[in-house]
């Protein structure tokens, strides 16, 4: 007799809790990052434009005198179309290694945010989308500079920042997986020197992958940047091979899904005891 009565009482006092929808929660997390980033608009917003300029000067004035044509493309074009996505790789990697670690361990920003009505999944997915956004922004910056100098001229190249977005997503989930294991911030040096730097050089950004020994090709093909560079170059130069492009896109999507799943699972352990 007593049982249902107690239950009823609990229901009576249970207040309604109209917490925000999944999309709104993701947006709130993303918005936090945008707000922090744009706070220092000048120091955060100008380097992405200067970096390609430095490359142009360095390569255009120097290296370009010795290398003119590579795989039937002007070397500056070859390099520029690679830089459009490698820049997204670097920014997303920084964001989700050092950035994520500092928010997690030093500033404890996540602890604060997680006390509000969001879940760990919301927090991390929001962060991944933010890293993608940064990739998109950095790609656009390179594209704008290259277009201004008449190096990338194909209108289709306006789509390449989307590849930058995907690149940002891929490298943020990868970085988060690394971050979930890292005990001290100095360990990231191994990841940068041992993985990100070689990735930049051996994924077809600065020279074609077919120059590499045959034995290295499957490894190169497994690296995420290889696919990003191929997509970007195809789009920017207008020589699209649909089969390869679909394959590269599927690789990216699969990488983001699987990597994102692992990253969230691993980082969750450090956020919820």
């Amino acid at each position: 007799m007593n049982e249902p009565k107690i239950k009823k009482n609990i229901q009576e006092i249970q207040p309604i809790a109209p917490y925000p929808s999944f999309t709104l929660r993701l947006y709130a997390v993303w918005y936090r990052h945008v707000r922090v980033y744009t706070k220092h608009l000048y120091s955060n917003g100008t380097p992405p434009f200067f970096e390609p300029l430095i490359f142009l000067a360095g390569i255009g004035l120097g290296l370009n005198k010795y290398i003119h044509i590579i795989n039937g493309i002007e070397y500056l074009q070859f390099l520029a179309t690679g830089l459009v996505v490698s820049t997204a790789m670097f920014t997303a990697t920084f964001e989700c290694t050092f950035g994520t670690f500092i928010r997690l361990v030093y500033d404890k920003v996540y602890d604060g945010m997680l006390a509000a009505s969001i879940t760990v999944n919301d927090l991390l997915i929001g962060e991944i989308i933010w890293a993608g956004t940064k990739g998109l922004f950095f790609s656009s910056a390179v594209l704008i500079v290259m277009a201004l100098f008449g190096i990338i001229t194909n209108p289709l190249s306006l789509l390449s920042p989307l590849v930058g977005f995907l690149t940002g997503l891929m490298f943020s989930v990868l970085a988060m997986i690394i971050t979930s294991y890292v005990k001290t911030i100095n360990h990231f040096n191994f990841y940068f020197t041992g993985f990100i730097s070689p990735m930049f050089f051996f994924s077809g950004t600065v020279f074609p992958t077919n120059e590499l020994p045959a034995i290295a090709l499957p490894i190169v093909e497994a690296l995420p940047l290889t696919h990003a560079v191929r997509l970007s170059r195809g789009i920017c130069l207008g020589n699209i091979n649909p089969t390869i492009m679909v394959f590269d896109l599927m690789y990216a999507v699969f990488f983001i899904m699987l990597g994102g799943f692992c990253a969230i699972k691993l980082l969750k352990k450090r956020l919820i005891e």
Partner: peptide
């Protein structure tokens, strides 16, 4: 509402921004 042991405020934002961002998390 939760007040944790350590002050985990967003160091990169101002007082008002901290509260604004937090309000956003509640929609």
């Amino acid at each position: 509402g939760v007040v944790p042991q350590t002050d985990n405020l967003d160091q990169e934002l101002t007082v008002k921004e901290n509260l604004l961002i937090y309000a956003k998390l509640y929609g």
